[in-house]
Design a binder for these strands. Structure first.
Length: 603
DNA sequence: TTAGGGTTAG
């Protein structure tokens, strides 16, 4: 009956053909007898003892040669050890080999292999393994279904997860437990359905399944990520004070991360103290979160101190920790230090990944060190990694920034040749790059080539083109694009209006610019400081001095401030007596005051 | 004597 529920993919049969991975070749029988004894002796705590793939493969080789074969438990432990090292596909291949040998398998074997398939984003193959299990009389249990459900959620196949979940309950194929509810809650949160997730939390309690710290942490984290901070903190309180569930390091990490993202340093610090009081020690994630927060605030040196501290405390920083630090130094333009950190990773046994490379690449690009950037970019492929869309976007931005449009085109083509799909950011970078390098025609033709897709109805893309056209003396095109928005049903945002107002001013059409300010308010789009600064600069340039005081007063009323170049223009006009010095007092009020609030963690 | 759910970086 259960078999009927599962859709076994058509390629299930071919899935069970054994293809030895390259690593296996010539290694199946190369174990020495002394090694063999050591490995067998320690095989009881296999996942602890086996720390590298070679040992695992050697042991597997040895085990499969025994007569009779070792117990299914021993094989399960080995598969599990390989999976723990994240060599998921290897674990799957070992499973296939076991089946060729007709070695016995049980539900633990099946569950481990399904988990590996799911981790490889191959949940459909996971279902095929389930089907194969049926053939071998292996009856799935709650763990099997939970693993598959989790795989579906991992692949964003939320509707399939939902229907499987409902089917399991309706047809009483498996009693849902707290973990199953938790997986479904995670799926709901992933798709922004926090309310439904909370409803399911209540429902599971009603059905006698007690949510635990994991269930709560998932929702708390999701609320934070959706900026529903008060809800997140309230749920945290409910968990601790009403339900008596103690938060653990993961819960704290989510809270601290969320608060840091919102610059609520005091509260984050308070939580760190709370952890100390509760004797919950910080883990690598916690330190990485702090390192990242400090780096984003420009405090890379403090972040470096945190890393030294964690090392002192016996916690090894990982690739994520160092990538954040590299990013931090890049943000400060301290490329020598960023490169030093990058180079030091090897000595700590860490291999920079594509994110690490992209961070450093971004630093070089922002500093216009384009030769270094290009070199690093090519190194990624040489090291056997594949640049992803973010890597390409970073490189493209760098090339256009220094005006190397031809190289930009090449990288853009290379990207598509390597099947990396450009996203909206890519197109934004390329279009903006072309516009900034006086290639508005090319930008417009690329825009038309893009056809009728999401980009064509993207207000950011339109705004870039409007700005590009207007800055390149093609204001008629800018105007046309702006008018197209209404036809397309696109809502201009404050940036779009600012670009148009700036365009009108550039053309000396100050009254039209002023009219557009009124129009945007009418349309429900509130102007910001930039709007007023742009308009003021236009007015000052074309000597419509009668409007200046009125605009400044409006700005004061709205709590906006003047930017440096507008202030300087105003002062020039006052100096030249084309504006009245009595305005100085008002201008003084509109100069922004520096407000600095930075994190300081005592850990 | 083995299997299932949560947190970090570009």
């Amino acid at each position: 009956m259960v078999a009927a529920v599962m859709a076994i993919p058509k390629n299930a049969a071919s899935f069970f053909v054994f293809h030895p991975p390259k690593k296996f070749k010539g290694r199946f029988h190369s174990i020495s007898s002394s090694n063999r004894q050591t490995l067998v002796k320690h095989s009881r705590s296999m996942s602890e003892k086996i720390t590298n793939l070679d040992d695992a493969l050697k042991l597997f080789d040895e085990m499969t040669q025994k007569q009779p074969l070792p117990s299914v438990i021993k094989f399960n432990q080995l598969l599990q050890a390989v999976a723990k090292m994240k060599h998921y596909s290897c674990s799957v291949e070992l499973f296939k080999h076991l089946n060729i040998l007709r070695a016995p398998i049980d539900v633990y074997t099946v569950n481990t292999v399904i988990k590996c398939c799911c981790q490889l984003f191959g949940t459909s193959e996971g279902f095929a393994v389930l089907g194969y299990g049926f053939k071998c009389a292996v009856v799935p249990d709650a763990c099997t279904f939970n693993t598959l459900l989790n795989g579906l959620v991992l692949e964003d196949r939320i509707l399939e997860a939902e229907s499987l979940f409902k089917k399991l309950i309706k047809e009483e194929l498996c009693e849902p437990d707290a973990i199953m509810y938790t997986i479904m809650i995670k799926g709901l949160c992933k798709f922004g359905n926090n309310d439904t997730a909370i409803a399911l939390l209540k429902l599971m309690e009603g059905r006698g399944c007690k949510p635990d710290v994991v269930t709560y942490s998932i929702i708390i984290d999701s609320l934070f990520k959706d900026k529903m901070v008060d809800d997140a903190l309230n749920l945290f309180k409910e968990m601790v004070f009403n339900k008596g569930i103690q938060p653990d390091v993961v819960t704290y990490n989510s809270l601290i991360h969320g608060l840091c993202n919102l610059s609520r340093w005091d509260e984050a610090s308070k939580l760190l103290n709370e952890m100390e009081d509760e004797r919950i020690s910080l883990d690598v994630h916690t330190y990485s979160i702090l390192v990242d927060a400090l780096c984003k605030e420009g405090k890379a040196e403090d972040a470096n101190c945190i890393i030294n501290l964690m090392i002192q405390r016996g916690k090894d920083p990982d690739v994520v920790t160092y990538s954040s630090l590299i990013d931090g130094y890049c943000l400060r333009g301290e490329m020598r230090k960023a490169k030093e950190v990058f180079d030091s990773m090897g000595s700590r046994g860490l291999v920079p990944n594509v994110v690490t490379y992209s961070s450093l690449l971004n630093g070089y690009c922002k500093k216009l060190m384009i030769e270094e950037a290009m070199h690093l970019f090519h190194e990624i492929t040489k090291k056997g990694m594949r640049p992803n869309v973010i890597t390409y976007n970073t490189m493209l931005q760098g090339l256009f920034l220094v005006g190397r449009c031809k190289d930009g085109h090449e990288v853009f083509n290379d990207m598509r040749a390597h099947n990396v799909i450009p996203n909206e950011i890519t197109y934004t970078i390329v279009l903006e790059g072309l516009c900034n390098n006086n290639q508005v025609e090319e930008a417009l033709s690329l825009f038309h080539l893009m056809g009728d897709n999401k980009l064509n109805s993207n207000i950011f893309v339109y705004t870039i083109l409007i700005d590009g056209a207007s800055k390149n003396g093609k204001f008629d095109i800018a105007r046309k694009l702006f008018n197209d928005l209404r036809v397309k049903g696109l809502q201009p945002n404050v940036w779009t209006y600012n670009v148009m107002i700036s365009g009108f001013c550039r053309e000396g059409l100050v009254s039209e610019a002023k009219e557009l300010l009124l129009k945007m308010e009418e349309m429900g789009c509130q102007p910001n400081s930039v709007t007023y600064n742009v308009l003021l600069q236009g007015i000052l340039k074309y000597v419509h001095h009668d409007m200046v005081e009125m605009l400044l007063l409006e700005m004061e009323g709205k709590g906006f401030s003047l930017d440096a170049s507008t202030v300087s223009m105003l002062l020039d006009h006052i100096k030249a007596r084309s504006l009245d010095a009595s305005l100085l007092k008002l201008i003084g009020k509109l100069v922004p005051k520096e407000e600095v609030d930075t994190p300081c963690f005592v850990v």
